[in-house]
Nucleic acid binder design. Structure first.
Lengths: 253, 253
DNA sequence: ATTTTATAAAGTTTCGAAAATCCGTTTACA
DNA sequence: TGTAAACGGATTTTCGAAACTTTATAAAAT
């Protein structure tokens, strides 16, 4: 658990960030990306449920677009790990399982620590300002529980993501940031399920995290984020019903 | 450099690998994936050069397929980081730079170590057999140099990948394997450039690696793979011409 | 000479129909 | 009764043409 040990990226001679890491497809404004964004959000928030078959007919209605456009978006979701496909038999929402959540969380611990440590070391005033700002917004909303309306849960999820993104924003490793981001989104699916069934209330870990980061205390901050992730897994494992024996949901179709 | 420290995935209660990690899109046999595979290979081998504009007209001829299919494949390449796109102005091959190679290699070191350590701990007879077999095939071909024909370079690249894949095949973390695989492919682009300009000859690092792995010596094997990756970066940095001042190739168009 | 505006060419994005494929059911045969 | 082949409906996959955007070219205006 202990030491942080992230090696800084001082190998890279220059910080010019004209890199090759995959594009985080949000800068785009074309119609395809609208659909992609919407579908991703719907999968993350389990509007489209795990294992659900994704038929073109229905999707076409739901998102008001053509087959080709849908196909492109779906193809994208597959490579993000949010959908699966088998040649000839269409697409379906990626399954979930405790084993998967554990696996991705372990990797997340490393990537969050790695990016956070580097971000703190290269933080700027603007970075601090955005952290303060995004924390403020997050804190304004109480962490949602099972009986809160969906819109509140969604908004909280958005602010939660923004806060965590702000923490690592000045990390200079595009690849680390990219993978961190993918895993964060994956985790959001499980977070959503946890919110749905949330019984226990957690203390304000985000505030501690914010302060440690602003104090530039790398070890403390990284320790906190690690605990934060692990606690989240624990909570999900103990409070989300169908998430223990893994594949007991195949019958759901 | 030292310690290996990869934490095993003993958190995951069961090893059933019915997971959610993104599909490695090679099991597919549809036409779209043929095109995707071919295009990926062409980018990796710099047939399609970094920064090159990818016009639909030309691609359509080259791969004998329709716009829609191409678009789907390109979209996939974007999320793998092998291409870029800007709404309204099409696609282009992802740029390369030394900074990028350094960045991805640092992350690769971690992921290769993580996956290799776990793979060794859970290796089976079949795993050992495949390592022996793939090493044999790799060793039959001498590492290609600048004057070797392209077909030889390609074949060697294929066998090289197969060997490295075989080493980590029994790793039980699908997400780690997935990201490792993406980064390995990224690195292949730079390896190709190195082969083109290779001056120095390296000793047989793959043999050492194979033996360390088969001897189940985790620390040694991980140390070797780390050195292997770092050496490759060094070689590329010193022997590939345009790969020092990063963006001196914007003029190439 | 430089900027601005208009026009044409090139290229990209979207769409829905046609071809191919899969899946469940019925029919034929041993 | 059980197995295999064959049909029909549903769904996916592929395609190229139409609509739209950007880029290049040329003429007009400052």
């Amino acid at each position: 658990m202990g030491k942080v040990l992230t090696m800084p990226f001082e190998g890279s001679l220059e910080n010019l960030s004209a890199t090759t890491a995959p594009q985080d497809v949000s800068l785009e404004d074309a119609a395809t990306f609208d659909v992609l964004r919407k579908m991703r959000e719907d999968i993350l928030c389990c509007v489209l449920k795990p294992d659900q078959k994704l038929r073109f007919g229905e999707l076409r209605q739901r998102y008001g677009t053509s087959v080709g456009t849908l196909r492109e978006a779906l193809s994208h979701l597959v490579s993000e790990g949010l959908a699966r496909t088998e040649a000839g038999r269409g697409f379906q929402v990626a399954p979930i399982s405790l084993a998967d959540f554990l696996d991705l969380s372990e990797l997340r611990v490393y990537l969050e620590i790695r990016t956070l440590a580097d971000a703190i070391r290269h933080g700027t005033d603007a970075w601090e300002a955005e952290i303060v700002s995004s924390y403020f917004l997050l804190n304004k909303l109480a962490p949602p529980r099972q009986d809160d309306p969906v819109s509140v849960k969604r908004e909280w999820g958005k602010r939660h993501k923004r806060f965590h993104d702000s923490l690592v924003a000045t990390c200079r490793s595009p690849w680390s940031l990219h993978f961190r981001s993918e895993l964060f989104d994956q985790a959001r699916r499980y977070h959503w399920l946890t919110m749905i069934h949330a019984r226990s209330r957690r203390r304000n870990e985000h505030l501690e995290l914010r302060d440690a980061v602003l104090a530039r205390d790398v070890d403390l901050a990284c320790g906190l984020i690690e605990k934060h992730i692990r606690t989240t897994v624990q909570q999900a494992a103990s409070e989300v019903p169908g998430l223990t024996l893994d594949m007991a949901k195949r019958k759901k179709a």
